[in-house]
Nucleic acid binder design. Structure first.
Lengths: 222, 222, 222, 222
DNA sequence: AATGAATGAGTATTCATTCAT
DNA sequence: CATGAATGAATACTCATTCAT
């Protein structure tokens, strides 16, 4: 997970112009995460983001259509990258239980060390009603479905207990991840806090989803 | 739970005037829940709440100091009542597992049938950065602590497994409840959906927290 | 023409509230004429109109949807009243030549003493491309048609020469009125200037439109 | 009038570079006429003119000091050329009546086929309050004076009736020309419309200005 | 208490203009 | 000369809040 920086795809600039351009967009997004996390979406003035990014107010509108669009772009640049990373990692893992553990580890691990981003994802994104209802909802649904599918596979193979709704389980897991991240981001946000939480949450969830005959598949040996 | 209306303690006024007064305050809060749920906190105009409540714009300021204060009052009137209800119910229950089950049932059961309130609690409240950081955070902390205490008691008595942090467990449970409620409120919000979810979530959580020796204490018989 | 004030229909206020309301709308329109005439439409700030009217900026938006709408309302309140007055006066006059003379006298007479309004009508109204193309054009067309109809009637009765297009004559007359008004308003705007101009323009136009046999019908005796 | 192109004095450049330079200035002015006529002065963005001219935004500022200055230059390049042409043509004509007829024919004839320019002259130029008050007013005055001088000469020689103010007559003639051009430009702008109008307007005006004894000097034969 | 007309502070966004390349 | 990315001043409009009635 060490290589899993959330901004690994910054385009390699060759021409000076591309450098400046790419630079500005990235600087604005980085500044937006910081300022939004600190003051909230609505309380943040566009001019504050501009100042934090070291650009003029108008420059922001060369890269983003509006303040709302800036939040959407933040979502796309960060959250979708996170989701894409998850999707690329999961196939490497065998077994539903192990996949769920990996989901938990990755989601919490990726946000560890990015407190501002964690706050943006768990709190700020929800402050734009428009973003929530029009844009983000389908993404969340897709993510929930992906988790539910893993659970359903585990149930089919007998690896997980079959008496729980996969979708309920998915929403519970996602909610737990979200709640843990939010309280961490809004609270002390101690180093290693999320990684430790990941291990414990995995224990809780995998035990809770284990077959009822007593054989517990925690994904770590018997 | 039939008596668990979220507004059972409205003091019965005797004089007509007092009655009208209380009436207006209640009408405004009810209208606020509806309008906030529909449009979000920031996109809602005070005049819209006034219109929905059937009062003049200025009247709202006779009962609430500001728009933010209206949201705070909503929180106090609804969420705190919910929490208080939980606290009054829990002592009637014996055993940590059974208490956790009851918490899950109550929180989800109380919001079933109050979709707008569910959306306000899970989404709208977070749209006011001020409310989140200055007011609600300590309440959430208190609630998390209450849950954590139940878990810790269960661990002490051997009723629950002792290798998980009570606070982590509490945050996971709260997050799961929150996530389930949010997706329900933002989605179909089918009748009975939350009650069914409560049973399944209890199964998942209690199994996940059961002692590791295989003896599962679901709180329902052995 | 002495009674022909351009604002005679200010609604008689009975209730105090209506009084304030009517007052504000009228004050804003009066202020708008003054400020628009002085600085032009685009160079005028809404706040300047508000200040000149002695109201708050926001108050303007209680009476007018936008700055453009304010100009449209000015048009309706003033120009249309002028046109309506013309239409009510013309039937009292007999003979095409005399009607044309009356049109010229009324249009110039009504603006005499209202220099700001004259400037608004001849210059400012044309500064809003939107107003010109979407709103005012049909009004001007209707006015031109009315003049052309008078000319056509005179031609049919033999009172006016028949070899000129009524529409061309109408456009020429209107243009002359407009040009005279504009140069008067932008220039010295001397007292009586427009009234004197009216007499001379009538002489010029009526002679120009007289039958070619040498009998000149100036509308004032032989 | 065939040689009366409105841009006949563009100096023929010899060196390619100078050619390109002159080219750009001309292309920008041509583009400005088109775009201004279509959208109005204020609604037109400098970048739109640049795009229509096929140059970069900044290039416009190599040839014109500002957007206002661009309009002024348009005026100078087109309107003044028109006026200069008039002045060079008039001396070739003998007699006040014939000179007035020529003025009318030239002004309308030159704009026939240049609808966009006609709209710019009659509408757009007035949208810049600054241009109107600071720059164009004296030019118009000079033009009006020139016409008035022709009328006065005709009055002195007995060719025109002496009872009308030369300045009033000039303003009426100019207004009629302006009004006819404007309605033509904003309306159908039919081919030949202005040329036909010229003939009729000349008839109207010259008859209107003819000596009162019945001898009509239309400038065409007796 | 209730009203709702009036207020005016507050801000996202535009676009003429500049200047480094 | 030419470019067009960057600038930042400038402003119409909104809406929470007030207060005279």
């Amino acid at each position: 997970m060490s290589e899993s920086s959330l901004s690994p795809r910054r385009p390699r600039r060759s021409s000076p112009r591309a450098a400046r351009t790419g630079d500005k967009r990235v600087r604005i997004l980085d500044a937006a995460v910081r300022v939004f996390a600190k003051k909230g979406f609505h309380a943040t003035r566009v001019s504050e983001v501009a100042k934090a990014a070291g650009v003029a107010d108008g420059t922001i509108y060369l890269y983003f259509k509006s303040k709302d669009e800036l939040l959407v772009s933040l979502f796309e640049d960060r959250v979708e990258r996170l989701l894409a990373f998850l999707h690329s990692e999961l196939p490497r893992v065998t077994g539903a239980a192990e996949k769920l553990r990996r989901i938990i580890e990755l989601q919490l691990g990726l946000l560890e060390g990015e407190r501002d981003l964690a706050e943006v994802v768990t709190v700020i994104l929800r402050q734009s009603t428009k973003l929530m209802k029009e844009y983000a909802a389908p993404k969340f649904t897709a993510y929930l479905d992906a988790i539910a599918r893993v659970v359903a596979e585990g149930q089919a193979s007998g690896e997980l207990r079959g008496d729980l709704s996969p979708h309920l389980a998915a929403r519970a897991i996602f909610g737990a991840l979200d709640g843990i991240t939010m309280t961490w981001a809004l609270g002390k946000a101690d180093r290693g806090g999320l990684v430790r939480a990941a291990g414990q949450l995995a224990e809780l969830v995998l035990r809770g989803l284990a077959p009822l005959d007593g054989a517990v598949a925690t994904g770590r040996g018997a």
